[in-house]
Amino acid sequence: MGVTCVTQWPVTENRTVPQAVEVLTKRLDALGASKSGNFGVDCETYQSVPTNVPLKYIHVMHNKEQPYTCYAVTDNRTCLVCENSFEAIMHRLNGFYVPKKTARIESKGTRYEMGDFIIKIGIVSLGPHARGVLVEVEYTPCVIIQDCWPLMVEFMQGFMGAQYTPNTHPMLANKQEVPFNAEDTVFQYLEQFENFVKRGSSTATVR
């Protein structure tokens, strides 16, 4: 797999989430992208039982690109890549970790291909509510993000608008020049999901 960048597509006040998605899909169609199926990334959070202080979280994530793999990520970003049956183990650990209520968050949508680029536009839903739009862009021939970052930024500006500048990629600052792998994509999704959850809870308290 190549280098990916997951970024949020802002849903403006006067638009609903599906309308925001439609704007992007129309642009991609105009650019000649071809649909290549659906995709989905989901995350379920397990919380340590209250007797354990401080509270710890384990995020169990799936990416439809790797359907038989399950990623278990802890708070300090340690990632365990394992088979799907890992969930059964989590149920066994009921005495230590319990699923957090209403914490299943997922991003689902259509996958597009355009030359060597793969674009995934997903609607993020927390429980039954649509919360926003996430766009994942993957450039498949390259595995070193430092090499192709400007190229990816240019590509993303191509369909998201010239004024759009994605946030600096976390891997650009943190890591040495190491090849990109599937966990790095999952980390990016997790980070975006956490942002949505935070924002969701803050708006809830305001109301």
Partner: peptide
């Protein structure tokens, strides 16, 4: 060696027709 990180000499862009 710097295929993905050097822009085109003429148009100054990285991508044209989805190719560097």
């Amino acid at each position: 060696s710097k295929l993905f990180s050097t822009p085109c000499r003429l148009c100054g862009k990285y991508i044209k027709d989805n190719l560097p």
